[in-house]
Amino acid sequence: MKREKGQTKKNFLKGIIQENPLLVSILGTCPALATTKSLEAAIGMGILFTIVLLCSNVLISLLRKLIPDEIRTPAYIVIIATFVTMVKMFTNAFLPELYSTLGVFISLIVVNCIVLGRAEAYASKNGVFDSFIDALGMGVGYTLSLCLLAFFRELLGTGGFTFGQIFTFIPLTKLIIPGAEKFAISLFQTPAGAFIVFGIVLAVVAFIKNRKAELKAFEAKQAKLKAAEEAKAKLAAQQAQGGQQ
């Protein structure tokens, strides 16, 4: 039972770190660049995306034995498109500001490679609970990486953060570093800034990966050296013993 618990946690965390859909697998890049102008839009996009992913993963995992193999992909696409349309309508009704900010990118969740990819690779082969956890991990991982991009873009582009423009139920608050407004680089609010930030974040990820690989190689080398030394010592001890005898 305990082992199961550990596995669930592992299943959840892999979407956030090891298999992060945006930063490691480089999937779903279109909304990642288009909706990260402000932190609020990124959070909104992440939440909508997570809802669609959760619903479609659970339903596809439920139906995985009923859907014939030949029509798997079209059936999945219809299911995903249904959920996207529902989410789109609810957003239009209850968060009209978010709807007009994200615009066509809500519809484009349909063709987001992550959703179809998770359906094909995970939900069609695993149980409902596992699929749910997998979707939750992937959704949270994607949301966090969107927020990371949006954090830098909004901070550098406007000199601070504004909340309450899209989620109108919270009061309008501006957290702007005093004096930073004058030095804001508006390039980071434009498409070019999105590419730059994404490129640098990916470079940092690659740097960490390289570092880890190097560390591993270094450790392996150390371990090898240590083993060799131990063997040497053992041999020496044996020889010493032999000499005594």
Binding site: A192, F195, I196, G199, L202, A203, A206, N210
Partner: peptide
Amino acid sequence: PKAFKGLPIALITAAI
């Protein structure tokens, strides 16, 4: 630079 090899430098190019 090693960290920029592949996609990161491609993205910077796209930015330009």
